[in-house]
């Protein structure tokens, strides 16, 4: 508890990252990354790897900067004018924040799914192939192939294969979220960013999404924000615990949930605090 109090008081400290995480091959590594909204600092010198082919969960109390960190990975924060950053991130060896980076091309290498399903007001088919459309892809067979592949990947194909030309908005909330996942994996991204993808869904839909994430493991590297400790323990390989803009502890999920090095982490994941 003292350490968290110290963080609240603004003292510096070292994040604890277990060796088993560092040993993995990272797809994204965050390096001494800080972020400011105007004057207000939201992220403090975060350094952490996101392991390739694994599911990494970000947990922490509300407002600790999980979404901010996630949105920094594909530079969605560029859209907010007041944002200023320090430090860097690296995607498969290439810098994300270097001045010469083409943001558009960078975003095409990642997929992102938001808290609230946000299908576009167009047909299911067009929703899925949107990333290809903006690249100017016209070939019907390629589009159809990608569409089927992505929908199968998102475990939605069987449910919608007969109604691909219907509006994406005609689906249920859980289906919409899987549609968004299908859209996110349509461009075959190097990393998949999920920001509380289940928080707007009922338990059954949540279960389906969790199954889906489980199936995507290995094929995709996934960084997921979640509020639900059980969910984190069920689906993730690594878990990072954040507090007030800082990374506190990061380890294999089983370690975090059973024998974390810091008692603060234990308090949080067991629900005694937060």
């Amino acid at each position: 508890m003292n350490r968290l109090k110290a963080i609240a008081d603004g003292q510096t400290f070292e994040s604890v990252i277990h060796q088993e995480v560092l040993d993995r091959d990272p797809v994204v590594s965050i390096r001494d990354f800080s972020l400011f909204y105007n004057r207000k600092q939201a992220l403090y010198n975060i350094t952490m790897p996101v392991a390739k082919g694994m599911v990494t969960a970000l947990v922490g109390p509300s407002g600790c900067g999980k979404s901010t960190l996630l949105r920094s990975v594909n530079r969605m924060n560029d859209l907010i004018e007041s944002v200023r950053i320090e430090g860097d991130m690296v995607l498969n060896g290439e810098s994300i924040f270097a001045p010469s980076v083409d943001v558009i091309a960078l975003r095409k290498r990642m997929g992102m799914v938001f808290q609230k399903p946000n299908p576009f007001p167009m047909s299911i088919f067009e929703n899925v192939v949107y990333p290809l459309r903006i690249d100017g892809e016209r070939d019907k067979t390629i589009l159809m192939q990608v569409c089927e592949q992505s929908l199968r990947g998102a475990a939605l194909w069987e449910e919608v294969k007969d109604r691909l030309s219907e509006s994406g908005l005609s689906l249920s909330g859980g289906q919409q979220q899987r549609l968004c996942i299908a859209r996110a994996i349509a461009s075959d991204p190097e990393v998949l960013l999920l920001d509380e993808p289940c928080s707007a869904l009922d338990p059954i839909a949540t279960g389906k999404i969790e199954d889906l994430i489980d199936r995507l493991r290995g094929e995709y590297s996934i960084l997921i924000v979640t509020h639900n400790m059980q969910q984190a323990s069920r689906i993730s390989d690594h878990t990072a615990f954040m507090y007030l803009g800082r990374l506190v502890e990061m380890a294999e999920t089983s370690t975090i949930f059973t024998r974390p090095r810091l008692s603060e982490t234990e308090d949080y994941v067991t629900g005694r605090f937060g």
């Binding site: 594909n74 969605m76 859209l79 558009i104 091309a105 975003r107 095409k108 990642m110 997929g111 992102m112 938001f114 609230k116 946000n118 576009f120 007001p121 167009m122 949107y130 990333p131 459309r133 903006i134 690249d135 968004c180 859209r183 996110a184 461009s187």
Partner: peptide, 27 residues
């Protein structure tokens, strides 16, 4: 037009004009 649509489009790697022309204007 909900901002979440714009964000979704940008996250797919769409540029400003593409987002306006494919998502914002139709909506």
């Amino acid at each position: 037009v909900p901002n979440s649509l714009r964000e979704g489009s940008y996250a797919c790697g769409a540029g400003k004009w593409q987002t306006i022309h494919r998502i914002v204007l139709p909506y």
